[in-house]
Amino acid sequence: MLELRLVQGGLLKKVLDSLKDLVNDANFDCSATGFSLQAMDSSHVALVALLLRSEGFEHYRCDRNLSLGMNLSNMAKMLKCAGNDDIVTIKADDAADSVTFMFESPNQDKIADFDMKLMDIDSEHLGIPEAEFQAIVRMPSAEFARICKDLSTIGDTVVISVTKEGVKFSTRGDIGTANIVCRHNTSVDKPEEATIIEMEETVSLTFALRYMNSFTKATPLANQVTISLSSDLPVVVEYKVAEMGHIRFYLAPKIEE
């Protein structure tokens, strides 16, 4: 028996909106730790890892580890029917072939339940080692989204370079080139407006903008994004999910032949 009650149901809507364009079907894994997901995009270039810790739920009952195979666009369709302020409860029996999403309005005057068919998904689970990063950039998530969107009108790839000058996002295309430099800046009114660059070594890596733009669908989840870079390793683009977890996108770099 699984029963997870999330007061901030709107968070789950935002999580699904940030996943559904990247991944079609995925297994949600429920354990005592929390509600998690790991999935790759269909071309195995990007990977997403979601964790919502059990403590973040108002009620978290998971009698035994369960894997719920869901079509993410169908799940997003169902969650779209919840109000942004609704309390969302996810329920499933141990041997269930469906999952129930229950939506309660904040003042309890409307209660809805949606039952979605589960699916068997052969998922590949990858072990992600802890890595030391050469550079970690924290910046406003909306700024990062704007940069990725702007650069993708000019080129297909972005070179992200971190030096002591700051972090540089560069692209080139048929019409020309573009470079955007963001400097370390903590003298801001609000902490979420800061750009914090921690650099052990200079690093420069090239990535497909199509995927970066897909990751920025998670922007409504968090004011800040963390971009962790190391030579010849996938970049990690991380958004916090309130105080309860994170969504991490990994993207393999393009390497010079």
């Binding site: 590949e124 990858l126 072990g127 996938p234 990994y250 393009k254």
Partner: peptide
């Protein structure tokens, strides 16, 4: 010319 690496070239199956 750049070659797109795959995630599976970095992380092993667990």
């Amino acid at each position: 010319k750049r070659h797109q690496k795959l995630i599976t070239e970095f992380f092993n199956h667990s």
